[in-house]
């Protein structure tokens, strides 16, 4: 069973970011089922955690609901992340959510990115803003990122709307990445404290390079 966490930072109800997130997770589920795999999909709408995230930023720890949400993200086998474009980039809420997750907790995580905006002119936000964020976090981002502008939600002129084609291609890339991954690395829980090396080793490590 593949655990997929879907994170969407849309603010409206319903939001176009949520619509895109659903489309991407449906596409992924379809791709996985082709190779006989089941998936559980856990959708996190960040608007529900907005106050908790702000509290975490100023207090340094997560309220219980946010802590559970972070845990479900760090425990997932793959992420689908979608943000609306605000003021030329992903939204502040989207960024803040990743700011409060330990910056090593998502290492190696397969990620599919999406964004929505009021105009197709923002499409490169995915490549110029969002992809560097997930590179910084050392995740593995699939090559295709999916941007949806208002006209994408209408009916396309071709047999299949372009958005669906892109969603399917991105989902196929993510499914392939998941299949190629022989073992899911054990990732530490967000707040897990690893034991220290013994004191004499700690001291020896300082003294060794100096001599």
């Amino acid at each position: 069973m593949t655990k997929v966490a879907v994170i969407t930072a849309g603010l409206g109800v319903p939001s176009s970011s949520r619509m895109l997130a659903d489309q991407l997770s449906d596409a992924l589920r379809t791709e996985l089922s082709l190779s006989g795999q089941d998936a559980t999909v856990d959708v996190l709408e960040l608007r529900n955690y907005a106050v908790d995230i702000a509290q975490h930023l100023v207090s340094g720890f997560a309220p219980p609901a946010l802590a559970a949400a972070i845990q479900s993200v760090t425990d997932a086998d793959a992420l689908i992340v979608v943000s609306p474009v605000f003021t030329g980039s992903y939204s502040g809420l989207f960024k803040s959510f990743f700011d409060v997750i330990d910056n090593t907790a998502l290492e190696g995580m397969p990620v599919l990115m999406g964004a929505t905006g009021g105009s197709a002119r923002h499409a490169l936000v995915l490549e110029h803003a969002m992809r560097p964020l997930f590179t910084y976090l050392r995740t593995r981002v699939v090559p295709t990122a999916v941007y949806a502008a208002p006209q994408d939600w209408g009916v396309g002129e071709d047999d299949e709307p372009a958005l669906e084609q892109r969603a399917r291609r991105a989902a196929r890339e993510l499914a392939a990445m998941l299949a190629g991954r022989s073992v899911t690395p054990a990732r530490p829980a967000n707040d897990r404290i690893e034991p220290s090396a013994p004191f004499e080793d700690l001291l020896a490590r300082i003294q060794a390079p100096a001599s």
């Binding site: 034991p195 220290s196 090396a197 004191f199 700690l202």
Partner: peptide, 11 residues
């Protein structure tokens, strides 16, 4: 937050 400090105290 630092496990090394707990180790020093224990040692």
């Amino acid at each position: 937050r630092t496990p090394e400090v707990a180790e020093i105290a224990a040692y």
